[in-house]
């Protein structure tokens, strides 16, 4: 049952991913991308990471995609006038497919090493995923976390400067 559910979600994710790169209208691409993000959020839930699923939906599907759709509408971008040259598409697709084959080859041949940590579904159940993430962020990863805030501040300032009327 679970495997079947996984396959359905995976199929939706891949198909909407394909739609992202095939749709001529950027709005359609954006909506397909949101669909993909939801699928990934589903995977997160299946992987015992409910907090990640929540922020996947809130930050990605919510904030970022809304911003992208907003910009698309603001700029009133028409569909692409014509496709790129056939050979570019062909060459790019060939490269992508070849890369995929290589990745799959790695997956098939490579073995997993490393030792398991102490985290399992029971502990997550006991403490709650959010609390675990919070503890990790505010103890072990405090400095990167604070640096992230500076990164965001820089991004805000950069965005304001770039989007100002006259630069």
């Amino acid at each position: 049952m679970e495997t079947l559910f996984f396959f359905v979600v995976a199929a939706v994710a891949v198909i909407s991913g394909l739609l992202v790169i095939t749709c001529k209208n950027p709005i359609n691409s954006a909506l397909s991308l949101i669909m993909t993000f939801f699928c990934i959020a589903t995977f997160y839930v299946m992987l015992n990471a409910p907090f990640m699923a929540a922020i996947q939906v809130i930050v990605y599907a919510g904030a970022i995609m809304v911003l992208i759709v907003f910009v698309i509408m603001l700029l009133n971008i028409r569909s692409e006038a014509g496709r790129r040259g056939a050979h570019t598409t062909l060459f790019g697709s060939a490269l992508g497919i070849f890369g995929l084959i290589e990745l799959l080859y790695f997956l098939a041949k490579g073995g997993l090493t490393g030792s398991r940590g102490g985290l399992d579904a029971k502990i997550i159940e006991q403490f709650g995923h959010t609390e675990l993430i919070g503890r990790a962020l505010f103890t072990q990863f405090l400095l990167p976390f604070e640096i992230t805030s500076i990164l965001l501040l820089v991004a805000i300032i950069g965005a304001v400067i770039l989007a100002k009327k006259n630069i």
């Binding site: 994710a13 891949v14 991913g17 394909l18 992202v20 790169i21 950027p26 993909t36 992208i68 910009v71 698309i72 700029l75 971008i77 692409e80 790129r84 570019t88 598409t89 060459f91 790019g92 697709s93 490269l95 992508g96 497919i97 890369g99 995929l100 990745l103 799959l104 997956l107």
Partner: peptide, 18 residues
């Protein structure tokens, strides 16, 4: 891997920056 490759192809073939 599939999603990543799809993304790569999209970057390489599309012209619209968004």
């Amino acid at each position: 891997a599939l999603l990543f490759s799809i993304g790569t192809v999209g970057v390489l073939t599309r012209r619209n920056a968004i």
